[in-house]
């Protein structure tokens, strides 16, 4: 098991008190597995990913968990220098906006070289060859020109490819992709997704994909977690969750998607995700739920396994 998280909660300091942003998060990721987290903005998807990379600001945030293991070792025992080894060789991350993630003052080839030097200890011509090789693998034809261009000289799609090359350079065992294609055109999105998928299959890399696009989700991952207001409300194999959703929130999300070749009213979900300071008591989705009953706002529901295979689970008892 590469990543194992049990009952994790993350809090942030605000006005001299701690505000819990996520809680009861369970997440397991093993070699070669693909897992997705879906939900609206403000559901805690990106925060959870950052906690896995150890990127949350120290002193201002607090991560508590019954179990939080990365490659079998408890995260609490990691020092900052351990994290530096972990990030890159074991865990790698791709962000939504490559312009802010890449260094604008450094040529794109040099940035990849830096990663190769730091994590794999390559140097000299070997480093250059490997960097160009990686750029080529990203489906870029004009390798030499791109190698010597600055990120701001490149289009969004090319920039995202450089980001991906950078993340894949040290051959990580887990790739965390946080909305990797949200800012891209559909045609470029399809290219980037297939690059990630091919690399994942070839290297047996595990993939944690965060996106709000359920169409992308359906094509990329085996298992999916649906997050709402800092909790996971439904989980299971992607096919089952998307075709037979149990939780009203998942149903709402799916009915919000405009679909090709189906002319029907797009329903949407009324209201919006509450902010962490005023998460409601009981079921957090109850105020927006069309099927809410009185009992929903008094009892706390935590994800429990349902069905015969105990894999597709759902937090709503009414479903």
């Amino acid at each position: 098991m590469l990543i194992s998280v049990k009952n994790q909660s993350i809090s942030f300091a605000q006005n001299r008190s701690w505000v819990k942003v996520t809680d009861h998060i369970n997440l397991n990721l093993s070699e070669g597995q693909t897992l997705g987290i879906a939900g609206e903005s403000g559901c805690g998807k990106s925060i959870t990913a950052s906690s896995l990379m150890g990127l949350l600001p120290q002193g201002k945030s607090r991560v508590e968990a019954d179990e939080f293991l990365i490659t079998g070792k408890c995260v609490k025992s990691y020092t900052e220098s351990d994290w530096r080894v972990l990030r890159g060789k074991i865990l790698s991350m791709v962000f939504q906006n490559p312009m802010t993630a890449l260094n604008p003052l450094m040529k794109s080839g040099k940035q990849i070289e830096e990663s190769l030097h730091l994590h794999l200890g390559l140097s000299g011509s070997q480093k250059v060859r490997q960097a160009k090789n990686l750029i080529g693998q990203m489906g870029i034809e004009d390798v030499d020109r791109i190698y010597t261009s600055y990120p701001w000289e490149l289009s969004g799609g090319l920039r995202q490819r450089i980001m991906l090359a950078l993340a894949l350079a040290p051959n990580p065992r887990v790739l965390i992709a946080d909305e990797p294609t949200t800012a891209l055109d559909v045609t470029v999105q399809a290219q980037i997704l297939s690059l990630i998928r091919d690399h994942q299959k070839q290297m047996g890399m595990a993939l944690l994909l965060i996106t709000h696009d359920l169409g992308v989700m359906a094509q990329m991952v085996d298992d999916v977690l649906i997050a709402y207001a800092g909790q996971i409300v439904e989980s299971g194999p992607v096919k089952q969750v998307l075709t037979q959703p149990l939780h009203p929130y998942t149903k709402g999300l799916i009915s919000s998607i405009p679909r090709l070749f189906q002319k029907k009213v797009i329903q949407g979900i009324p209201g919006r995700v509450p902010s962490p300071e005023d998460f409601p008591e009981g079921c957090r989705f109850a105020p927006r739920c069309s099927r809410a009953q009185l009992s929903c706002s008094s009892l706390t529901y935590i994800l429990e396994p349902t069905g015969t295979d105990f894999r597709h689970s759902n937090a709503c008892p009414l479903a």
Partner: peptide
Amino acid sequence: LLNAMPRMGSQI
């Protein structure tokens, strides 16, 4: 463009 759309319930 139509082919590039990620869709639910369809394969790669």
